[in-house]
Design a protein around this nucleic acid. Sequence first.
DNA 1: ATGCGCTATATTTGTGTGGATATAACGAAA
DNA 2: TTTCGTTATATCCACACAAATATAGCGCAT
Lengths: 112, 112
Amino acid sequence: MSFKIKSRIWIEQEDKEFLGEGKVQLLKAIEETGSLSQAAKSINISYKKAWHLMDAVNKSSKKPITVKSVGGKGGGGTSLTPYGKSLIGVFDEINKKCWDFLDIQLEKIKNL
Amino acid sequence: MSFKIKSRIWIEQEDKEFLGEGKVQLLKAIEETGSLSQAAKSINISYKKAWHLMDAVNKSSKKPITVKSVGGKGGGGTSLTPYGKSLIGVFDEINKKCWDFLDIQLEKIKNL
DNA sequence: ATGCGCTATATTTGTGTGGATATAACGAAA
DNA sequence: TTTCGTTATATCCACACAAATATAGCGCAT
């Protein structure tokens, strides 16, 4: 039947979104570029949207996820804490496992 | 850490959404009420939105999913074909399995 | 001191989604 | 032939969200 099954996962804390695919994508871009503004450009979202996403992540997390420096050489920048890096690793791992799991489920019922 | 993991799944056909949670919820309500307008009321969406959802489902499916009758006693109504009923059953089953799977995955990594 | 590139934030502008509303067609039953 | 509760569809409007724009502060380097 050529069906495909897709999914989006997210992690909640106290009934509010804490981490989703968009935020993880942004955190990855921050890790690669070392700057929030550069990260926003690289994934084609506005700086404002990126800032709000990161702000939400930081406010909802008890442990710090990003570290910033304002001013100085290069103007400053933003990078991830070790905790932040481990978070995106865990998220990606679960996400990938979920996709694989769903593909298997779909295979099981090709007889619609 | 009291994290919760959530997910939404959907089924695509030719890179377009064919069936998602909203559509399944609507189809269930149609099955229960026997009418599109009653179904829309029962799940608190506008008739317009419900009609567009059902229209999209029917257009993207090769086999018919709903049958309608216009006019007559009671004004007519909409009901599901056996294929439609089996679809929502399969969707629910995969969806529930996915939730269970993700809960297990989260348990495995309580050590962030 | 001045410039630079970044973070931070307010304000305005644009847009797409959904809601409300109106109207028509349909066909059995009275 | 009138009534009734549907399906079906067009039009207008409001609101939320995103984009665009503007402005300010920071601190190292020159």
